[in-house]
């Protein structure tokens, strides 16, 4: 039971993990709040979110066993 959260780039650095298993939350807004409460440093960075491998722009409903990827931008070349 729960949601799999994959963490990339800087988000993985901040959390010290590249995967988190969290209890089911209703939607991506709630997930953001939960993550930012647990890791306040996340508040200061921008990231995109993919739910089940699709990048979303709006609050999206989450269900048991969904996989969410937290994708911060990076620009190195």
């Amino acid at each position: 039971m729960g949601i799999n959260v994959l963490l990339f780039g800087q988000v993985a650095d901040i959390t010290g993990k590249d995967i988190l298993k969290i209890p089911v939350v209703k939607n991506t807004n709630e997930l953001n709040q939960l993550l930012e409460k647990t890791y306040p440093a996340l508040k200061s960075i921008k990231y995109s979110i993919a739910v089940n491998k699709k990048v979303i722009q709006e609050n999206t409903a989450l269900h048991n066993e969904d996989t969410v990827a937290i994708l911060p931008p990076f620009s190195g070349g």
């Binding site: 800087q10 960075i45 921008k46 722009q57 911060p72 931008p73 990076f74 620009s75």
Partner: peptide, 10 residues
């Protein structure tokens, strides 16, 4: 990425 990040954050 609709908006660029704050320069200090990346």
């Amino acid at each position: 990425f609709p908006q660029p990040p704050l320069p200090s954050s990346v």
